[in-house]
Structure formats: structure tokens, C-alpha cells
Design a protein around this nucleic acid. Structure first.
Lengths: 138, 138
DNA sequence: CTGAGTGCGTCCAAAATCCCGACTTACTGC
DNA sequence: GCAGTAAGTCGGGATTTTGGACGCACTCAG
């Protein structure tokens, strides 16, 4: 977890990932949509490429222009994004309801659900945090 | 999503939340375990309390000592933590495998799964980002 | 050809944040 | 009395972020 956050926990990082999921692969497009300082976004894209989450592909030379694509590791961030959105929709949405929605091919929105790894049972969160085993660290 | 990150996306915030899930509710304990600067952690705890994720309860006066508990909104962050851990375990774990494991009451670890909100079908991620509807912003 | 516009950055100075170690206060246990 | 613990605060330096301007290599309209 700590490791995840090191890679993906910096400001703007996850928003950039979301943008690529939404199909906005170009620098300017992202700047416009998420409102990050160009400088910071450039740095963030670099670290995300280094971390193997984005792949930077040239789509034109003279002038060299690049697009960012998700690697497999990047695509695996999808549940993180959905989960975060879910939480925000639940606890932070103001008058204007949930915006940007990702849809399943069947036409309905996606969500994540907590399940037990082995029995698959959709573990509803107990009122008290679930039982856990404590171990060195994470 | 952007809103979620504003609340929970600051450095150390999610690690603090995780600690409370693990049952470490005291300031010093958290400092020791996550290694954040005392200063920063103090600030973070304050913002998390303001955001309604933690509740600060006094457990002794003379000297006044406090513990942090999760509110309902805080408990709802559980899937976010699990999802993040899952991703880290998958893509970032080095020789030392996944540490700190949360377990379901049946004794097995928990995980999150992407499902369709209506059909419940465990939507596996399509090779290409899923279809989506684009809307103003998030 | 000229001038405007676009795309992807970089540069810089100011502001905000973060980090670290030391310090404080009020206990408890030896 | 002395060490230790707990929950911070304080001062200051180090690091990041921010926003605006700038550069460059095009393309397009006139």
C-alpha cells in the first residue's frame, strides 16, 4: 500500500490516469481538463512513464508529438479509480450528482465490491473494521 | 474523483486511515509505523477530522490524550485501501510478498472485484478501456 | 508571405508543503 | 529522582507546486 501510494499518490497522478482512461491521451487536453499546472503535469507524466503505468508513444515527428497510453499495470489501476469515484460520489457529491460515468458493455455503470478472496462471498463491511491479522508492515 | 483526492489524496492521509483500520488509533503509534513527520501527521489528522473521516476522542485528561476513530464515511474508505493494496501487491511487491493482510471473518483475505452495478456480472477489464460516456467533468 | 493558432513542453520566481530534530507538558513505573 | 511515554508544537531548511511567460515546429487562412 505504501508502495502504491509512492507511485500513484502524488498530486494529479490519478487524475492523469483517469484522463487516459477517458481517452484523453494528449498533454494539452489533460492540462485543460484537470487544470494542473503544465509544469507539474509534465513531471507527473514522466514519473508515471518511469513507473511503467504509461507508455509514451510518438504520433508525429517534426514537430514531435506524443500520446500517453496505459500499460497493463496502468489498466489495472481501473478499480482504484472506480473505488475512489464511488466513495466521492457517496460522501462528497454536492447538488450536482455523480458526473463522468464509466459504463459496462451491457450499458450499466461499473462498481467495485468487497469480496472474500476464497469464498467469494460479498463481504459487507462489518460495523467494526473486519478482523485482521497484524504483521510487520505494508 | 477529484473531490475524493482533495480529501484523501494528500501525502500520508491514506496511510493514517489504514493504521486506524489496523487498530492503531494513537498519534505516536502512527508516527512510528508509517514514519511520517510528526508535524505533517498532526496536520493530516486535523484535516481528516474536519473532513469527517476521523473522530477525535479523548481517552484521558491530565494529560489530555486522544485517539482517532473512523466515522462511517471513514469506514467506507475500506475498499479504496484494499484496492490500492491489491494493485501494489500485484505490481510492486518485491521479494518479500504481500505483508499486512486483512482477513474476512471466514479466515480468508478480502479483495475487491469490478462488477456491473445492475447485472452484477464480474466485469473483467476489456483489453481496451471499457466503454464510457463522457460528461462535463468529475 | 504573414499572422494566428495549436501542441508540448521548459524556465523562473513565489508560494505552499514537507521534513527533521528539539522541546514541552503531564503523567506512570522503577 | 530518573527514565520513559504520549501528543503534540516550534523553528528552519529542503523540496514541490504553482502560474505565467516563453520557445519551437509546425498548420491553416488570407
Amino acid at each position: 500500500m505504501a508502495r502504491s501510494l509512492e507511485v500513484v499518490g502524488e498530486k494529479w497522478a490519478l487524475l492523469a490516469v483517469r484522463e487516459v482512461f477517458l481517452g484523453n491521451r494528449r498533454f494539452d487536453e489533460m492540462v485543460r481538463r484537470i487544470g494542473a499546472p503544465r509544469d507539474t503535469l509534465a513531471a507527473r507524466l514522466r514519473t508515471l512513464v518511469e513507473a511503467g503505468i504509461f507508455e509514451r508513444r510518438q504520433y508525429s515527428d517534426h514537430p514531435a508529438r506524443f500520446e500517453y497510453f496505459l500499460t497493463d499495470a496502468g489498466k489495472d489501476l481501473y478499480p482504484v479509480i472506480v473505488t475512489l469515484r464511488q466513495w466521492g460520489d457517496r460522501h462528497l457529491s454536492e447538488q450536482d450528482g455523480p458526473p463522468a460515468v464509466f459504463k459496462h458493455t451491457c450499458g450499466h455503470p461499473l462498481m467495485t465490491r468487497l469480496v472474500c478472496e476464497s469464498c467469494g462471498e460479498p463481504a459487507s463491511l462489518p460495523s467494526r473494521p473486519p478482523t485482521f491479522t497484524r504483521q510487520p508492515a505494508s
